[in-house]
Nucleic acid binder design. Structure first.
Lengths: 216, 216
DNA sequence: GCCGCAACTGACCGCCAGTCAGTCACTGAC
DNA sequence: GTCAGTGACTGACTGGCGGTCAGTTGCGGC
């Protein structure tokens, strides 16, 4: 059936077109500002059609976030591979993740909405499963980099790589969150502080915490 | 005018009653699940009346969050004061904040919504100003504890206390965020990990990063 | 007894995610 | 050639919720 094959191609093309439209709108309006009507308009479709391709708004957003992660995981891998040691690799990983996220913060905003929404976000859809897989890939990168550092002697070996990776990643979550809204934050928080130092300070702290130097 | 004084008392009492109702509903439904109609019902008022006491939902939530912070800042201060050194004080502060937040996570969820909502949350209201003041108080506690540690020699002196406090606090944000949803997270994240270690691991990392030992 | 004023009410509005009965265009069978 | 079947698509509609405002109520002062 050549027809079925063409239908399938057209279907994925349309899906991509919807994602293009959604991604652009998210870039200009932010996750919270996007309306499904606007996505439909931009994709030159009616709103009902969107729901033939994505189960709901969250699933659509998850698909966009997956795309974004796919774009920048290779760049982060590149940065890690250039590092001289595992410990330097950790620094490179975090810095690359931060730089990428500042450049395009939308995948991060989505992850945050997911984490903080608790039960209110429907994460049972297929698009979400795919997204979760990507999050797993990111974490695997962190674990692998820690293990590399333990193997080459730059990172202390008296902790398990997996929980330590979670600590590393999770603490960085907060740093990125505040770093992203640096300017707004400096006004919002009723304390005069220069947040440009936040990332370097945190990287230093993590280096100290992870370095094999100082371990008996 | 005794009448005016009584009116004033009644007005603040009513405001407190609304806050009571809102706080209870938030505790059972979560910040995202609370509806203004439900608050009005619980307070035995009509919805319109709520808006005579609070400019909008965000302002009401900010007022509830302020209450919650007011309840537990003293307990955190107590924990800090019992610590032997500034470095121990940092540990005590974070641990106390974490324990309090696990017990009643709603102030944290609100802070998170504020931080991640960006421009979409109206933080110009008076209730919000008050709330911001409380956030400032929390941060001041962190700064003071760091300075105490620098004075007593337990914390390294080669960094400024204020930016370091921001690093400390901000990185803890992520830890608390994930720690709060520990069980859900362990299922959600596609990596088998025991998140109960997260907080102790982070406290150890911070101790290493801040300790004066190891500094030239 | 009546006026003024503040508190309060609840029907109503606008916004937006999500739905579904109906239309349209194409395809393959005869 | 035509006609029934099928999948893609449509857009008016629904429901939920934050927020509004014209109208009501009742207390205090005169």
């Amino acid at each position: 059936m050549a027809v079925a094959a063409r239908r399938e191609r057209e279907r994925t093309a349309r899906r991509e077109a919807i994602l293009d439209a959604a991604q652009e709108l998210i870039a200009s309006e932010g996750y919270y500002g996007v309306r499904m009507d606007a996505v439909a308009d931009a994709a030159e479709l009616s709103k009902g059609t969107l729901y033939l391709y994505f189960e709901n708004k969250d699933a659509l957003c998850a698909a966009v976030a997956t795309r974004l992660i796919d774009e920048f995981i290779p760049r982060i891998e590149g940065a890690i591979n250039e590092a001289q040691s595992g410990l330097d690799g950790v620094r490179a990983l975090l810095q690359a993740y931060y730089d990428q996220t500042v450049e395009n913060p939308h995948h991060f905003r989505f992850a945050l909405a997911w984490l903080s929404a608790g039960e209110r976000m429907d994460d049972s859809t297929e698009a979400f499963q795919t997204y979760r897989g990507r999050v797993g890939n990111m974490l695997s990168l962190v674990v692998a980099t820690l293990q590399r550092g333990q193997a080459d002697g730059s990172i202390r070996v008296d902790v398990d790589a997996l929980p330590q990776a979670m600590q590393l990643w999770t603490s960085f979550l907060g740093i990125v969150l505040v770093g992203l809204n640096r300017e707004a934050m400096e006004q919002r928080i009723p304390v005069p502080v220069d947040l440009t130092q936040l990332v370097p300070l945190h990287l230093d702290a993590m280096r100290r915490a992870l370095s094999s130097e100082g371990t008996a």
